[in-house]
Simulated scan of single mutants.
Amino acid sequence: MSNETYRQFDPWRPAPFKEEARKQIVSSHYFNVDHLTLESPQSGRFDRYVLHGNNGDSVGVLAVTSDGQIPLVEQYRIPTHRWTLEIPGGHASSPTERAQDVAVRKLREEGGYEAKEFVQFTRFIEEPSFSSQYTALFLATGLTPVERSVIGPESPRSDVRLYTVDEAMELVNNGTIVDAKTIIAIVRLHGGLLKHIKG
C-alpha cells in the first residue's frame, strides 16, 4: 500500500453506483428516513437507509465564562441508556429558526446563560455512513447567568457542571465525555480556538 498522492482529494467526483429508487419510510419532527435501492457494477443491487435532519443543521454551543470555565449539561440519552455530559445543543423548532437562533435558545434553556457574542467555528457531518445531518458549532462568550428552562422528560433532574478547559480535556481523554460534538468543541478549545478567533 502506498501513501503517495497523485491528485488532490476531490469530494465531488462521480459516485461509484447509481441510485435506482428512494422511498421515505419514517417521518418525524427532527428527522426523516429514506430507503434507497442502489446499483453498482462491482456489487450489483443493494439497499441502504439514510437519515435526513429536518429544519437545517443541529447545533452545539461551546460557552466560555469570563474565568475560563465551560458549562456542560447532564443529559439522559435514551438510545444508549446512560447519562452524558454535553455542551448545550439541539435542533431548530421550525424551518425559519436559523442555526444561530438555535444556539442562543439552547444556551439559555439548557446552559443557563445568555452571551454577548456567538461565532460559528466549525460544521461537520455527524455520521456520514447513514446520515446527511450536519452539526454547526458556535463559540459563545460574554456570558450572563439566566434562569434555565425545563429540559424535558428525558432529563428531569439534569444539572449544569462547570469545568476548566484542562479539566474538560481530561474528561475527554479518560472517556467520561463521549458525545461527539462536545469532544470536537473541547479539543478545538484546548488547541487554542479562543486565540485563533479573537486574534
Rank of each mutant, 00 (worst) to 15 (best):
P156N: 03
V165T: 07
I186N: 01
A140D: 02
D34S: 11
D34Q: 09
R82F: 05
P88D: 03
M1W: 12
Q69T: 14
A168M: 01
S158H: 07
E39F: 13
V59N: 00
V160E: 00
A92K: 00
M169R: 06
V33H: 10
E147T: 05
N3G: 13
F121P: 04
L137R: 00
Y30N: 15
S132N: 13
T122P: 08
G112I: 03
E170I: 03
V178M: 12
E110N: 04
P11A: 04
A180Y: 13
H81K: 13
G89M: 05
E126N: 11
A21W: 11
A99R: 05
S66V: 09
G60E: 04
F121S: 04
W83S: 03
E110P: 03
R82A: 09
K106Y: 04
D10K: 08
G175Y: 02
S27M: 14
R48T: 15
G175E: 05
T144S: 15
E74I: 05
D159P: 11
S40Q: 05
V150I: 15
P145G: 05
G191E: 14
R161M: 13
G142N: 00
K116S: 14
I78D: 11
N55T: 02
F118P: 01
L139Q: 01
L72V: 01
P11T: 05
H29A: 14
